[in-house]
Design a protein around this nucleic acid. Structure first.
Lengths: 167, 167
DNA sequence: CATGTTTTCTTGATTCATTCCAGAAACCGG
DNA sequence: CCGGTTTCTGGAATGAATCAAGAAAACATG
C-alpha cells in the first residue's frame, strides 16, 4: 500500500465530497474547497486569491460559479454579516452560529447551545414555515478592544444597538 | 387649543425625535422618518421613492446621508438579511428580531423571547466583548408557500422590489 | 430678523461585489 | 477516445453604496 501525503488525502476527500453530491470534479471546485478548508470564513476575493496559488488561470467568475454550485449542493454554507461581502465555510451540520468583530470584521464560530435547527422558537410565526434561526453575535475582538482596529471602525449597520435605555 | 391632524402630530413628533438626539431638523430627515413610520423594513430605494412624494427634489445621496445620521444617532436601526439591500426601521428599544421570507423577501418583526440584549449567551466568547445577538429567522410566508413567490427563489438576490411603495 | 458659521444637500463620478453573456474548454458516460 | 453537457474564460453590465466639491439650508447669535 502506497502512503499518501496529507495534502493528497485531503484533496482526495474533496473530490469525494463533490462526487457525493453529484457535482462534476473540476480543478476550480477542488481548489475552492481546499481554500475554504484552509481559510474558513473567507470572502470571494480571498478565495480567488487562494485558488490562484494552485491554479493561476482561474477566472473570478469560476470562483463565483463554484461557490454557487457548492452552496446549492449543501457542501458549503454562506454567511453575510451586515457590512461584509458574502463569506463561506465548509458546511458541518452542527448548526453553529457566528461571532463578528465590529472593528476588524473577523468571524469566529460559536457552537449552538440549543442543539439543532431551528434552535430558537417564536410564539407567533405569522403563518411562515420557519426552517432556520441564524444568529450573529456582535462584539469587539481582543485586538480591537486594545485599539488595533484594522478598518474604519464600526460597521455601517448595527453600530448603535440598544444602549443603556435597554432593560 | 388648536386641534392638530394626526399627520401634523406625527411630523411634530419626528421633529422632536431629531432635536432629542441633537440632529438638525431638515426636510429630508423628517420625510425619511415619516417614510419609515409608514413603511417599516423599507430599503434605501423604497425610502427614496416614498420621500419624493413629499419632497420631489431630494437626491438619493441625501437619503443615504439621512439614514446614516439617523442610524448613528440611534433613532433608526438597520438590518441586512443575506441577499437583500440594507433595510431600515425606527428603533424601538425592545430588542426584537426578524423573520424573513426566502421567497419574496418580506420581513416581519419577532419579539425577543428572552428579554433584553444580548438575549443569548455563549460559553466561550473568544475574548470578545459581545454586546448583541442578532437573530434572523428564515422561512416561507403563507403566500410563497402557496406558490406565489415573487422572486427567483433559491438564493435571495432580490434587487428592486417595493415598487408598490408609490401608492 | 439679518448674519455668519456649520452642517447638510445636490450633482455627478466612482468603487465594490456580484451577475450576465457568448464562446472555448474540460469533464465523464459510453 | 468521442460526443454531449456542463463548466470556465474574458469582458461587459448592474445595483448598492460611497466619495467629492460646491450650493443651500439650519440655527445660534447679536
Amino acid at each position: 500500500m502506497v502512503t499518501m501525503s496529507t495534502v493528497q488525502a485531503e484533496e482526495h476527500r474533496e473530490r469525494e465530497m463533490l462526487r457525493g453530491v453529484g457535482l462534476r470534479v473540476t480543478q476550480p471546485r477542488v481548489a475552492v474547497l481546499g481554500a475554504l478548508r484552509r481559510h474558513p470564513h473567507a470572502d470571494a476575493s480571498a478565495i480567488l486569491g487562494a485558488v490562484r496559488q494552485a491554479v493561476p488561470s482561474v477566472s473570478h467568475q469560476a470562483v463565483y460559479d463554484c461557490l454557487h454550485a457548492l452552496t446549492e449542493s449543501g457542501l458549503v454554507r454562506s454567511i453575510q454579516p451586515a457590512g461584509s461581502p458574502a463569506r463561506y465555510e465548509i458546511r458541518r451540520n452542527d448548526n453553529h452560529h457566528h461571532l463578528v468583530c465590529r472593528g476588524c470584521g473577523e468571524v469566529v464560530d460559536i457552537p449552538c447551545q440549543t442543539g439543532s435547527a431551528p434552535c430558537l422558537h417564536t410564539d407567533d410565526d405569522h403563518g411562515y414555515a420557519i426552517d432556520e434561526a441564524e444568529v450573529y453575535f456582535w462584539g469587539l475582538c481582543p485586538a480591537c478592544q486594545a485599539g488595533h482596529a484594522t478598518r474604519p471602525t464600526e460597521f455601517p449597520t448595527q453600530s448603535h444597538r440598544d444602549r443603556e435605555d435597554q432593560k
